[in-house]
């Protein structure tokens, strides 16, 4: 028998071991739910599987009695739209400012302290200001995401742009490149896969800010719905919504990772 530290899981074993905790969690939930429902059939805290199916059916596949909309899809579309606009604007800002401050020392000296200072402001603390300035419309919610993740993106990309080996910057100059060409042909392409990585890391925060903003002021959206049905202790809606949000987050992350591997093979295979 080999020592534990030397033992590896086979391909099947790895899947089995990976799934095991999920299965355990589901079983624990079902047992607990069963026990509570046996004591009180009207318990709302841990609904059984049938209530979930029922709730999903109601939210996703039947028009709402009040508005005639399919709520889950309306919410998903609204939230994804805000997230996409917020993250896209942040990524663009992060890319531009990250490259400018990372590649050009004069700009770094001027801009970097400001960005560092701004990044220390807790975004949720200025949410009221956003609502006052931008009103309760879409703009305030998108702005919260932008304010929340842009400083991180700028600082990360500045670091990455500054990390490009000096040899390569010198090489470009000996090939006759001016500053603009160095940025266009060396810094920008090398920073792009880093941008995707940084966006992946910041998506967690982006979701956090999105749901926080929706919870406070919105008329549709995944975060809005969760906080709305909380008033009725509707765990049968909240838990599927949380699972759905988690799945969306996972799918976006997975898609970005795949895209990066496909588009920037030199970045992922170099070692």
């Amino acid at each position: 028998m080999k020592k534990l530290i030397n033992r590896q899981a086979g391909p099947v074993g790895r899947w089995a071991l990976g799934l095991l905790p999920f299965v355990v969690l589901v079983v624990l939930y079902l047992v607990a739910s069963d026990a509570r429902l046996a004591a009180n059939p009207n318990d709302k805290l841990l609904p059984d599987l049938a209530s979930f199916v029922d709730a999903i059916q109601r939210m996703a596949f039947e028009p709402s009695k009040r508005s005639g909309e399919y709520l889950l899809w309306v919410d998903t579309l609204a939230s994804l739209e805000r997230l996409a606009i917020g993250v896209a604007v942040s990524a663009a800002l992060g890319l531009v400012f990250g490259i400018v401050t990372g590649a050009l020392p004069l700009f770094r000296a001027g801009i970097s302290p400001l960005v560092t200072g701004l990044s220390l402001v807790p975004p949720l603390a200025i949410l009221p200001i956003l609502f006052i300035v931008f009103g309760l419309g879409e703009l305030a919610k998108v702005m919260l995401i932008i304010i929340g993740i842009t400083p991180f993106l700028i600082r990360d990309l500045q670091q990455r742009a500054a990390e490009i080996p000096a040899e390569q910057l010198i090489k470009m100059q000996t090939l006759g490149a001016n500053t603009w060409q160095i940025i266009l042909r060396l810094v920008w392409p090398q920073v792009m896969p880093r941008l995707i990585g940084a966006v992946r890391l910041s998506l967690g925060s982006a979701w956090l800010f999105l749901i926080a903003a929706e919870a406070i002021a919105a008329t549709e959206g995944l975060g809005y719905r969760i906080f709305l049905v909380r008033r009725y202790l509707a765990m049968d809606v909240i838990l599927p919504y949380v699972a759905w949000i988690t799945f969306l987050a996972f799918a976006i992350d997975f898609a970005l990772a795949r895209y990066s591997r496909w588009r920037y093979p030199w970045f992922h295979q170099a070692g």
């Binding site: 390569q168 090489k171 470009m172 000996t174 090398q190």
Partner: peptide, 17 residues
């Protein structure tokens, strides 16, 4: 540095991307 002087370093001389 400019184009009058070409250089080859020990490492990082070519552009990886």
């Amino acid at each position: 540095p400019d184009e009058s002087r070409g250089i080859v370093f020990q490492r990082y001389s070519v552009l990886p991307h």
